[in-house]
Nucleic acid binder design. Structure first.
Lengths: 207, 207
DNA sequence: TCATGTGAAGACATTCACAGCA
DNA sequence: TGCTGTGAATGTCTTCACATGA
């Protein structure tokens, strides 16, 4: 099995390649990919061992073929459905960014409690009341959810997600979720991120 | 110097402690902190060595004192100003979350280009036209910025940030920024995060 | 010549396990 | 007894450096 870090970088390489797809030659060297993606060329070569795609010393990697290998490794055959819980700023930012960007991944349902936001199409996705979470997740075979609700209701909402069969949660609420074993949580508290950068930037500046 | 991972966890411990501040006893054991924050107790004890705070085998850590040590380690004396560039959904989500949450950190300026959003107070922060970036950053001594603009203008905006003296960037745009050495970039592409969770969750489900 | 793929080395991070203490 | 603090061991990740091939 691949490590989380390796996975993150592979996903990043795919994005970088997509951006470079139309530009320049058909092929790309590891050091070019390195320059754009911010990792070292040795790291890239090592990472690509995991997906079994080989380049050639003469021309490097063929962009189209490498993309194909990355897609095969990262995606499933069928489109996967994902839910957004909370139609506030973060939820809407996600919906907006997502629109048509990833062919194998779609936000097929959005949940909220505000009557004004219910039963309509928001950036291409249908909105539902949170009480329908379980039913819709079953119906649409959803196992991944993005939690973007206010801190005050984050824990109870996360529990509802787990009860609805979700076992991968991307958590934007600034709260420590305590959930059963086997549920994968990735925390993305924006404030913590700012605190981190502030600290690092301060250290750098001390030269 | 502390490592990035260690730093992330220390920041997390602080958030966990703040949440637990009023609950239960005055002190807390490493395994309790572990349960809430999701790390191992050995990890926590090891991490706390870095900030030089010692607990007692009898009572564990005193919450108030540990918080004080963490604050001293993580914060500066004076309040630090941070800029948000882009007043769309993400920018506003950040402003909203931030309000009054961190005493030593404030979003003192927001930049955009939309005339409708300029020269007003948005969630407690003043908004300016992007052309004023350099002047305001100098004036307010800003060295950290959160980039939350559309992908199409992310690279040029990032360059403006660097020109304005910013050397720590939290990047929410789904774009590979290419910037001079010495600028610290932390990428938070939401789509990549969803792709990662989807992959991991799928593997877990295969049991 | 110059880039890939990779064994081996090195750096880094986490966990173990236990002495020491209340 | 049951915790902390920490050397030592283990585990993981990244980089080095070079054989190989176009």
């Amino acid at each position: 099995m691949i490590s989380k870090r390796n996975l993150e970088r592979l996903i990043q390489y795919r994005r970088t390649l997509l951006a470079l797809q139309e530009k320049g030659a058909d092929s790309i060297f590891s050091h070019e990919l390195a320059h754009c993606s911010g990792f070292s060329s040795a790291q890239i070569r090592r990472d690509l061992m995991a997906i079994g795609y080989s380049g050639s010393p003469a021309h490097g990697y063929n962009k189209r073929e490498l993309l194909k290998s990355l897609n095969e490794f990262l995606d499933t055959e069928e489109i996967e459905n994902v839910a957004v819980i909370g139609a506030g700023h973060i939820g809407r930012a996600l919906l907006h960014y997502f629109q048509g960007r990833r062919p194998k991944l779609q936000i097929s349902a959005v949940f909220d409690v505000d009557p004004e936001k219910l039963d309509r199409i928001m950036y291409g996705s249908h909105t539902y009341h949170i009480d329908q979470l379980s039913a819709i997740c079953k119906e649409q075979n959803i196992h991944v959810g993005i939690l973007a609700v206010p801190a005050s209701v984050a824990q109870e909402t996360a529990q509802k997600m787990v009860d609805a069969g979700i076992h991968g949660i991307l958590n934007y609420a600034p709260v420590d979720l305590v959930l059963p074993e086997g549920v994968y949580i990735e925390n993305r508290d924006m404030i913590l991120a700012v605190e981190k950068i502030t600290y690092i930037s301060r250290q750098l500046n001390k030269h």
